[in-house]
C-alpha cells in the first residue's frame, strides 16, 4: 500500500498542519510516512501546499507529483491540481470557497463545505479539520484515535482547550461524506 496525498490551499488555511497531523497519525500506526511542503515566498499568504506519502513499505520518491488523493481548499488549487490527479484517484474540494465544479470524470469527487460546517460548529478556523475528517473517513488510512493523538501532541498542553472543537470538526467532516 502506498497513498500519495496532496493538500493545497491559501496560506493560513492550515493545509501544512493537515498534512503533518496525517503524517504523525500514520507514524503512530507504524506506517512509513513522508511530509513535504512547498517552500519559498509562496509560503507567506499565497498558495501553500504539501504532499504526504503513507505506505507500508519504505517510501520511494518523497514528491507527490501524481496524487492518489487531492485535498483542495481553494479555487486556485483546484485549477492547478485537478489535472494532475492520478486516473482513478480521489478529489475532495472545499465547496464553501470553490464555486466551480471539477471537470474530471475519471476520478471520484467529493464536495465538502468545510467553512460552512466549521462556522456552524462555532469556529471558522477548524475548516481544515472538517476536511481532514472527511478525507480520513473516505480513505481510512489511519484511525480517528491516531489523528486525535497526533492533534494532542501537536497542540501541546498550552492549547489543550482547543481539542474538543477540533474533535467535533473531525467528526462533522467524517459525517458529511458518510
Amino acid at each position: 500500500m502506498e497513498k500519495r496525498v496532496l493538500i493545497a490551499g491559501f496560506g493560513g488555511q492550515g493545509v501544512l498542519l493537515m498534512g503533518q497531523l496525517l503524517s504523525k497519525a500514520g507514524m503512530r500506526e507504524n506506517l512509513e510516512v513522508c511530509w513535504m511542503p512547498s517552500y519559498g515566498p509562496e509560503m507567506r499568504g499565497g498558495e501553500a501546499n504539501c504532499g504526504v506519502v503513507i505506505a507500508d513499505e519504505p517510501i520511494g520518491s518523497p514528491l507527490v507529483t501524481e496524487p492518489d488523493v487531492a485535498i483542495l481548499m481553494n479555487r486556485p488549487s483546484l485549477d492547478k491540481f485537478e489535472p494532475i490527479i492520478a486516473p482513478g484517484g480521489t478529489l475532495l474540494y472545499n465547496s464553501s470557497l470553490i464555486d466551480a465544479e471539477p471537470a474530471r470524470t475519471d476520478i471520484m469527487v467529493y464536495d465538502v463545505p468545510c467553512n460552512d460546517i466549521a462556522v456552524k460548529l462555532g469556529n471558522a478556523r477548524v475548516a481544515n479539520m472538517v476536511m481532514l475528517g472527511a478525507f480520513n473517513a473516505l480513505a481510512g488510512l489511519v484511525s480517528m484515535e491516531s489523528l486525535l493523538d497526533a492533534l494532542r501532541e501537536t497542540l501541546g498542553k498550552g492549547k489543550e482547550r482547543l481539542i474538543p472543537i477540533n474533535q467535533q470538526a473531525l467528526a462533522a467532516g467524517a459525517e458529511s461524506v458518510a
Binding site: 503533518q20 507514524m27 512509513e32 510516512v33 513522508c34 511530509w35 513535504m36 511542503p37 518523497p62 514528491l63
Partner: peptide, 10 residues
Amino acid sequence: DGMIGQMMEP
C-alpha cells in the same frame, strides 16, 4: 538538497 532539508519523516 532542499527536499531533505524541508521534508518531515520519522
